[in-house]
Structure formats: C-alpha cells, structure tokens
Nucleic acid binder design. Structure first.
Length: 688
DNA sequence: CGACCTCGAGGTCA
DNA sequence: CTCGAGGTCG
C-alpha cells in the first residue's frame, strides 16, 4: 500500500504509541544534553532515534503535531517579521561600572526597604547574546519574540523553534507545573568555539565573518528563512519571567530552579544566592562571586560581559518597583571592557633595527581593561589591507592577550567620506631613503644601513640588558647621542668622555660618570652576548649561543665561510648567509676592531659541565603570568640547573610555571597535558 | 609539508 | 607578553 499524502486512513494504535514514545525519548535526551548538561547517549544514537521518528512520521503524516521534535524547522521563509507586544514590558538594566556604584546600589536598596545589610541577592553571569521572550501556553511554545523597544518586539518564533536547547514542550515538574501561561525570558547565545567554526565556514564560502558571537547570534535570530537559523549553533539560558499564570515562588533563586524544572536550560552552575555572613554583607558576598566570575570568564565556553545582581525576594522587588526603563531591584555589573571604540587620528611609521617600516595607529586615548591606550600596531601593509584601516577611521580595539593593543576591525559606517586607503610610503620617513618590500616578504624596509632610526635601534639593542647590559643608556640618551653625531656606531660609545656628555640634557656630572662607569663595566661580557649585541639579522640570543658553542670564539666565526656555518645544527642557509654577510662588510669589521681596541674582552662560555642531576636537567620550562622574582632570574635559575626556557608551549614543553594572572599559555598547556607548576612548587624544585 | 622554534616588533605602567 | 613571519628540521 502506498501512503497518500494524508497517509493511511487508519493509524495502528501501536504506531501512535511508538511515535509518542520516541518523541518523549528524544525530548528527554534534549533535556539531558541542553538543560542538565549530562548526556546519556552518543550523538549517533540520538541521530538514530531522530531518524526513526522522521520515518514513522513520514509514513503517517496525520499524526505530526507541532511540538514533535522533528517540527523545529517549519514553514517557508518570511517576508518580514510580525510585531509582538510583550504582556509585560521587557526592561533593560542599569549598569554599575565599578565597586562604589555597586555599593551605592546596595545602599539604595537598603534605604528603600529599611533594613540594610540583610538583603539577599542573586548574582548570575550576564551573557553576551540576544534577549528573547518565550510564551508557553499550556506547556507548548507558542510565541518567541525579541526585546525590541521593551514593549514591542519582533515575532521570531519560527527561528527560535529551531534552537534545540529550547523545549517546544515544557515538562510538568516543579513549582510552575501546568501553568496555563508563562512568559520565559532568557538569552540566546553562541559558544565561542562554535562561533569560530561558523566563521571559518563562512570564510571558505567567501562570506564576510561575524565580528563576535553576539553579532552572529543577533544575525541568526533575525534570519527570514528559519532553515538558515537551524544551521546556526544557538544555545539558550533562561533567567526570568514576564507574565505568569501560576503562583510565584518567594524569590528569584527559587524561580530559577522552577524554570530549570520545566526543562529549560538555566545557568545555575555559575549563579549564586548571596546571603550575609558574620563578617560580610550580602553585597560583599556577591562581589566576591563577581571577582570569581571575572577570573574564570575566559575559561567559560561562552562570552559574558559582567554579572547581574538581583534582589532575591520577589516581594521586595515589587516594593522597589521600576524606573522608566529599568527595574530598581537589579543592576548589571560590567567587567572592565576589554574592547573599546575609538578613532584613528593618524598613522605613523616606525623604523626598526632591521629597517622595517612598521605602521602604528595613533588614536584618541581610550580606556581598555583599565589601561589607557593611544597607540596600536598595524603590523604591515597586508594587515592594513585585510582590515582596510584608514586614517580617520573609527575602530574597535582590544588588548591581544590582554596586553598588546591591536585594531580588531573598522566601523565602516562611521568612516569619513574623504577616507583614502592607506599605503606605507616608499621613502623612509626618517632618512628619506628608498624603502622596498623584497619579493615574498611582508615588511617594507629602509635600504639605508646607516639610517639614523636604524642606528638608534641598533645602539639600544647593543646596550640592552640581555646584550651588553649598559645601565643608564636609555632611549632619550641614545636619541641625543645619535642626533648630535656623537655616536655613529656602537664602538663610539667606548670613546665618549665626560666633557662630551656634559653638553647633553639631563646629563650633569653625576649621571655622566655613572654612564661612563656602566659603559666601562660592560667590557667584560660573555662572548655570546657580545655576538648577540652586534645585532646581526636573524641572530638572536639563541643562535648567538649556538654559534659560539660551535666556533669557540669570535675570531673563528668571523672568518667562517657560509658553508661552514651551515654545517652547524640549527643554522640554515638564511642565517649562515646573514652572518657571513655581516662579517664580510668592512665597516663592521672595523667596528669590531675598535670595540676590542677599546678594551672589550669577550669572556669564553663556561664549559658546559654536566653538573649534578637536577629536576630541570634537559627539561624545557615556560613561564606565564607574573611571579615574584624577575623572569630573567627565573630563566637563569632554570639554565643553571641544566634546563631550557621556552617562549611558547608545545608538546616538547615539560613544565609550565603559572604565576598570577596566567595568560593563554596556561590553557594551551592544559590542552596539551603539560605539567603545570605553581610558583611555590617551582621555587621548591629549583631550590630558590 | 607540517611541527616547532626563534626573531623582532609592538604598548603601557610602576 | 603575544603575535606573525620566517627559518630549520625530519
């Protein structure tokens, strides 16, 4: 028998039972997965259940009901969204940006209720997503709408039905059991890694990426074709109610549990009921939880921009009432923004030691993560083109890894009409020489080897702590020395005298003699440091050491042919060529001769005695976060004990030492299963 | 070619 | 302290 479009006239009652059982089973697993975060079956098993239900329903279409799990994606694309008037207005929240504002909120509540410090609060993470209201009638999802202006939003039911975390039918459990009508409010959002995957997929299809998970969510919710929304990985957390035709519980905390009992996902794991204790008021308890959230925010799979603090008692909420746009009984306590919007005043060009021209955006100062930012690197031309950054642009900036400011994106609709694409100039802004970008490289470089900008950087590098370690020779001083032609290469430093220095700013006799002492003292330097100090391109601390270990001293190295250099483990053609070129250049040879003539006596490397076995012998260690001793000292300690210090985590890393405020390296270390040490554990192992 | 590492460049604050 | 570029190794 071939089923007609209406299916067989009679549906066997066994089939009806099977279908209902399957639906219930699927709903149960949806709830286990989304609401309880405790899946019992694999995705494959789930898919099998789902397909079986689909097959049965295809065979007997007349039994399909709108609350069936198969009916999430329904209908055809909409022309536009209908309006939906909220039964009770969806208010926004007033913000508190710092502790005093939060305490003020608490004080206001205390005054209004006339019993200070006894008020219970509920604190919940504030997700960065899109607020949605779900109207359930007799347990079935009837309407889903956006917040809109608070009174009227858009009816996005067909889209929201595709969000698996949102039940189409509520469970009959808990305080709200069988409420004829309940308006549930919550946040639709996207997980960070799913957002990243979505953007990667868009990139492959040549579509522009979404700026952040929030935008991606908002875009997904406002799709006219629900089939598109269905493909977006949306999640949901419920946090409150509007109209409820059922008795209300005493407080917000019970309310959250009531929603959870209905089968709705609620972020209970990161919410707290805050009661005052003997030594702390309830707002202090809330604040403590807020600090906790701030600490773990980057470990959460979704983005939060703060926390919401609500007076727990619903009765008290009623007494407190509302202001025009926001309730008086709740406040959004925001984290320091890690991103900010500002304007690029101009783009400056920096010239580095290697002659690289680096564009830097000079911006209107703005506070990001508690620090005022006014400059951010734009890296290179490719980066500028990719983001299409122009002078005068309004941009979103953030601190990469919470440290180095970077331009995230341009706010295109705020671009001035006269904005022109930016190109790094073809002349060095410092010496006017030609600047070229060699084939296959990203950087444009000034070709003039004695460009003053390059010279300054070279001297600074020479004097740096890890190199010759000349204390007192800072940027300002180098600037003056070079500009007045007192120093034309590193060797000139050793021929300075007090009289010459006396003419400089901030250089009275005391500082002058200190500086001369420092320069004089630097003459006994370990030979690998000396080599590093010369600033040969591609020769950093590590390569310098490797080369010295191989050749023993400078003499042997200066006369080495590129082929000999290549023999060395870790030295490839590029480095070999760069080293050979440097020593072949007569002026460099002359400079080295003058340095040695000035009395520099490069000390040989201490022979690497095997030494006693230590906890760090042959181990690679990495530091993240701040520790109470300096990084340099920590590094020395590890090296003294026969270990190596790395800059980035890889499978070869043996230990990661995590100090205060560890960075992303800690996450990566955990991912790779690297042993993580606390500072005290490290100190103990190192015998510090 | 991918994995891993080093170099070099960037910014602010105490 | 982090990132991208670029270098080296297997």
């Amino acid at each position: 028998m071939i089923p007609t479009s209406d299916g067989p006239a009679v549906v066997p009652s066994q089939v009806i039972r099977d279908i209902e059982e399957l639906r219930e089973e699927i709903r149960r697993h949806d709830q286990l997965y989304y609401t309880l975060d405790r899946p019992e079956i694999s995705d494959t098993e789930y898919d099998r259940l789902f397909r079986r239900l689909e097959e049965l329903e295809a065979q007997y279409p007349q039994v399909i009901s709108p609350d069936s799990p198969t009916q999430r994606v329904g209908g055809k694309p909409l022309e536009k969204f209908e309006e939906h008037k909220h039964a009770m207005p969806m208010m926004s929240l007033s913000n508190a940006f710092d502790e005093p504002e939060l305490y003020e909120f608490d004080a206001r509540i205390g005054r209004a209720l006339g019993r200070s410090n006894q008020i219970e609060y509920v604190i919940e993470p504030k997700l960065d997503g899109v607020a949605i209201e779900l109207v359930y009638e007799n347990g079935l999802l009837a309407i889903a709408s956006t917040r809109g202006d608070g009174y009227t939003g858009e009816d996005v039911t067909s889209n929201i039905r595709t969000v698996k975390a949102i039940p189409l039918r509520l469970r009959a459990a808990g305080i709200f059991t069988n409420a004829p009508v309940i308006d549930v409010r919550g946040e639709v959002f996207m997980l960070r890694d799913e957002f990243a995957r979505l953007n990667a997929a868009r990139d492959e299809e040549g579509l522009p990426p979404f700026a952040n998970p929030r935008n991606a969510t908002a875009g997904s919710v406002r799709q006219l074709d629900p089939r598109t929304t269905a493909k977006r990985p949306l999640k949901f957390f419920a946090y409150g109610v509007g109209r409820v035709e059922a008795p209300l519980p005493e407080g917000q905390w019970d309310l959250l549990h009531g929603l959870h009992d209905l089968g709705l996902p609620v972020n209970l794991a990161n919410s707290r009921l805050c009661r005052h204790t003997q030594d702390r008021t309830s707002i202090e308890v809330a604040l403590e939880h807020f600090r906790q959230l701030e600490k773990i925010r980057h470990d959460l799979p979704y983005e939060i921009d703060g926390a919401v603090v609500k007076v727990n008692s619903l009765e008290a909420q009623t007494i407190l009432g509302v202001k025009t746009r926001s309730p008086r009984w709740a406040v959004a306590f925001k984290f320091e923004p890690v991103q900010a919007i500002t304007r690029i005043l101009r783009i400056e060009i920096g010239v580095g030691r290697t002659g690289a021209l680096t564009p830097v955006a000079v911006m209107e100062p703005v506070s990001v993560g508690g620090v005022t930012i006014s400059r951010a690197t734009l890296h290179n031309q490719d980066e500028i083109d990719r983001k299409d950054v122009r002078e005068g642009d309004t941009v979103v900036i953030q601190r990469a890894g919470d440290v180095i400011p970077e331009v995230v994106s341009v706010v295109k609709d705020r671009r001035p009409d006269n904005g022109k694409p930016y190109t790094i100039p073809d002349e060095c802004p410092v010496c006017g020489s030609h600047a070229v970008r060699p084939e296959g490289q990203v950087a444009k470089r000034c070709v003039n080897v004695s460009c003053p900008a390059r010279l300054k950087e070279t001297i600074r590098h020479f004097a740096a702590r890890d190199a010759m370690d000349i204390e007192g020779l800072g940027v300002k001083l180098v600037e003056q020395l070079v500009d007045r032609n007192l120093v034309k290469d590193a060797a000139d430093l050793y021929y300075l005298d007090e009289q010459t220095l006396a003419g400089l700013e901030r250089m009275a006799s005391k500082s002058a003699s200190n500086l001369l002492d420092a320069i004089y003292g630097s003459r006994s330097v370990r030979v690998d440091r000396f080599l590093f100090a010369l600033g040969i391109p591609l020769v950093g601390e590590h390569v310098a050491r490797v080369l010295i270990e191989e050749f023993g001293d400078l003499d042997a190295l200066t006369s080495a042919a590129p082929e000999e250099l290549r023999e060395v483990r870790g030295i490839g053609p590029e480095v070999a060529q760069s080293v050979a070129n440097f020593f072949r250049e007569p002026r460099n040879g002359e400079m080295i001769r003058r340095l040695l003539a000035a009395g520099i006596k490069p000390a040989p490397l201490e022979p690497v005695s095997p030494g006693p076995e230590t906890p760090f012998s042959g181990k690679t260690v990495l530091f993240t976060g701040s520790i109470s001793i300096s990084r340099a000292d920590a590094k020395k300690a590890v090296e003294r004990l026969g270990g190596k210090v790395a800059g980035s985590v890889s499978r070869n890393t043996d230990y990661v030492v995590a100090g205060e405020d560890p960075g992303s390296k800690l996450d990566k270390a955990k991912d790779l299963g690297v042993v993580v040490l606390s500072e005290s554990e490290f100190r103990e192992m190192a015998g510090l």
